[in-house]
Design a protein around this nucleic acid. Structure first.
Length: 490
RNA sequence: GCCCCCAUCGUCUAGCGGUUAGGACGCUGGCCUUUCACGUCGGUAACGGCGAUUCGAAUUCGCCUGGGGGCGCCA
C-alpha cells in the first residue's frame, strides 16, 4: 500500500460528453498528473433504461481529444478492473447482503405506484419528500411472504433518524447535515443493479480511490456515502466538490444554452488546447493575471486550494477569443493540417477533392490571423477554391469610387497584370501603388475595386498576397467578369 | 415546502484586516493600415443591503436580499 493519489472520472453513459462532466474529468486528470498519481476512468453503466448507445465511445473520444489519458479503465485495463459497473454486479450484491445481515439495510417491497402516491401527498402537505420507511419494520416472515407472492424487493439503507453526519471537503471545508433529512435511500434496484450510491462507494473502495473530485451537485448525497463507508467498514476517501458550470441565465448548463458537448466544440473548430485551457479556468486560476497556459504549465501548477466555490458561467465569447489566440500560435503548417478537414467539409461539392495541400497551406497562411475557429477558415477563404461566385455589382464601387473610376482602374489593372514579369505580392503592391498615383486616385479607391473584383468580398486578407496566391490567370478572368458586371450598373 | 451552499466589473477571476480593489473577455476611443483582422496605447465597469467587531474592513460575525444545488428503483 502506498499513499499515492488515485482519482477517477466516473461518467454514466446516458448521453453526450457534457462540458461540465468533462471539466470534472479534467480536474481529476490535473490533480492526478500534478501529484504523480493515477487517473482512472470507470463507466457507471448501472441505469439500463437511460443507457445511450455510443455514449461511452463519445465520452472516451472526448477525453482523448483533450489529451486526458487514463492509466486504468476501458481499453486500457488495470489491476482493479473490470472498469464497467455492469460487470461488477456480484460485488454490489455481496455488499448489500452484508449490510442486510448486519442490520444496516432492509428489503422494501413498496411498489413504485405507492411511492409515487406517497410523494404526491408529501408535496401536497408541503413536507419534505422521502421514503416513509414502511418496510423498515417488516419481520422476516413478512418479507418471506412478500417474496413468495413474487414481489421483487429493492434494498434500502437504514439511515439513522437522528444525529448528524459531517465530513471535511477540500473545497467547502466542514460540511454537516442532519440525519433526519435523509431518507432510507435505495441501494439495490429490483433489476439487480445497484444505485449510484452503492456502486460508487463499493468501487471507490475496491479501486482504492484516495480523492473523490466531483461536481457540487453531489455534495448533499455525500453524507449517505459516508454512512455507507462506515457501515461497510471502509475508510472513506477525501472529498472535493467542484463548482458547477452554469449557462448564461445562471441555470445548470444544458442543451438549450447551445453547444454543451465537448464533441460539438470540436466540430465547431475549437482546438483541444483551447478547450483544455479554457475549461481549466472554470473554477480554478493560477494567479491574478495568467490565463493562456500550456497543458504542462496547468497541471504543474494545479491545486485544489485554488479552486473556487462559486459556480461559473460558461462564457462563449471568451472561448472564441482564446481559440483565436491558440490558432495564431500554431505553425503555418500545423494550422493548415488542422484546417484541411474543415475546409473539405465546408467547400461546395463542385470543388475537387482532395484539395492540393500546398495550395491550402498558402491560403491558410492568409487567414490564420483572422479565424477564430477552424470552421471559419472555409468562410474566410472559399473564393480561393472556386470561381463561379456571385456578388452584387455595387460592391465594386467602394468609398469615393465612381463607375468611371472603377472601370478605368480595372482596365488599367488588367493591363498591368498582363505586363508584369513577376506575380509576387511585393511587386504587385509596388506597381498598383504606382498605378493609383498615375490615375490620380487614392490607393484605397483603386484597391477596393480590385479587391472586390478578385475576391467578391470587401473584407479579405491583404490584397496583393491574395492575388499572388490566386495567380495571374484567375485574377484576369475575375477582373473581366467584374468589368462585365459594371456594365449592368446604371 | 424542507435541507445544504454561494455572493468582487455584464462574464471569467485576483484579493485572504491597511491596495488609487489588479488582470482577462466583451464593449468603446486613438494609433498602425489597401479592406478585414492582428498588434498597440487608452477608456468603460464591481466589493448586493443593513448592522456588529476593529484605530482600520471586499476580507471577520449576524440578519436581510439575491442566486445555486439537492430532496428518484437517475446519475
Amino acid at each position: 500500500m502506498t499513499n499515492q493519489v488515485r482519482v477517477r472520472f466516473a461518467p454514466s453513459p446516458t448521453g453526450f460528453p457534457h462540458v461540465g462532466n468533462i471539466r470534472t474529468a479534467l480536474f481529476n486528470w490535473l490533480f492526478a498528473r500534478h501529484s504523480g498519481g493515477t487517473f482512472i476512468v470507470r463507466i457507471e453503466d448501472t441505469d439500463v433504461n437511460r443507457k445511450v448507445e455510443g455514449a461511452t465511445e463519445a465520452i472516451l473520444a472526448g477525453l482523448k481529444w483533450l489529451g486526458l489519458d487514463w492509466d486504468e479503465g476501458p481499453e486500457k485495463g488495470g489491476n482493479y478492473g473490470p472498469y464497467f459497473q455492469s460487470q461488477r454486479l456480484e460485488r454490489y450484491k455481496e455488499a448489500c447482503d452484508r449490510l442486510i445481515a448486519q442490520g444496516n439495510a432492509y428489503k422494501c417491497f413498496c411498489s413504485s405506484e405507492r411511492l409515487e402516491k406517497m410523494r404526491e401527498e408529501q408535496t401536497l402537505k408541503k413536507i419534505a419528500p422521502g421514503y416513509d420507511r414502511l418496510c423498515r419494520s417488516l419481520t422476516s416472515d413478512q418479507c418471506a411472504a412478500k417474496e413468495a407472492q413474487g414481489v421483487v424487493p429493492v434494498v434500502r439503507f437504514k439511515t439513522p433518524m437522528q444525529g448528524e453526519t459531517s465530513f471535511d471537503d477540500m473545497i467547502w471545508g466542514h460540511v454537516k447535515f442532519e440525519n433526519r433529512g435523509i431518507d432510507d435511500f435505495v441501494l439495490l434496484k429490483s433489476d439487480g443493479y445497484p444505485t449510484y450510491h452503492l456502486a460508487n462507494v463499493v468501487d471507490d473502495h475496491a479501486m482504492e480511490i484516495t480523492h473523490v473530485l466531483r461536481a457540487e451537485e453531489w455534495i448533499s448525497s455525500t453524507p449517505r456515502h459516508k454512512m455507507l463507508y462506515e457501515a461497510l467498514g471502509y475508510q472513506h476517501p477525501i472529498f472535493a466538490h467542484l463548482p458547477m458550470i452554469l449557462g448564461p441565465d445562471r441555470s445548470k448548463l444544458s442543451k438549450r444554452h447551445g453547444a454543451v458537448s465537448i464533441t460539438e466544440y470540436r466540430d465547431q473548430g475549437f482546438l483541444p488546447e483551447t478547450m483544455f485551457n479554457f475549461l481549466s479556468l472554470l473554477g480554478w486560476s493560477l494567479d491574478d493575471k495568467t490565463e493562456v497556459m500550456s497543458k504542462d504549465m496547468i497541471f504543474e501548477n494545479f491545486s485544489l486550494e485554488r479552486v473556487s466555490k462559486v459556480a461559473a458561467i460558461f462564457n462563449v465569447q471568451k472561448l472564441n477569443w482564446m481559440n483565436g489566440v491558440y490558432i495564431r500560435a500554431l505553425s503555418a503548417e500545423d494550422f493548415a493540417i488542422r484546417a484541411l478537414p474543415f475546409l473539405e467539409a465546408s467547400l461546395p461539392g463542385e470543388v475537387d477533392r482532395p484539395l492540393n495541400f500546398d495550395y491550402v497551406k498558402k491560403v491558410a497562411a492568409l487567414v490564420q490571423d483572422r479565424a477564430k475557429t477552424l470552421v471559419e477558415v472555409g468562410e474566410l477563404s472559399d473564393f480561393f477554391f472556386y470561381d463561379d461566385f456571385t456578388y452584387d455589382a455595387g460592391l465594386l464601387l467602394g468609398k469615393d469610387v465612381t463607375k468611371e473610376i472603377a472601370v478605368r482602374g480595372l482596365e488599367n489593372g488588367k493591363e498591368l497584370i498582363t505586363s508584369l514579369k513577376s506575380f509576387e505580392s511585393t511587386e504587385l503592391e509596388k506597381e498598383f501603388r504606382a498605378l493609383a498615383e498615375k490615375m490620380e486616385v487614392k490607393t484605397g479607391q483603386l484597391f477596393s475595386t480590385v479587391r472586390t473584383a478578385v475576391t467578391s468580398r470587401t473584407a479579405t486578407p491583404p490584397l496583393f498576397q491574395t492575388m499572388s496566391v490566386l495567380g495571374r490567370e484567375r485574377c484576369l478572368k475575375r477582373i473581366d467578369k467584374a468589368l462585365e458586371k459594371l456594365q449592368t450598373l446604371g
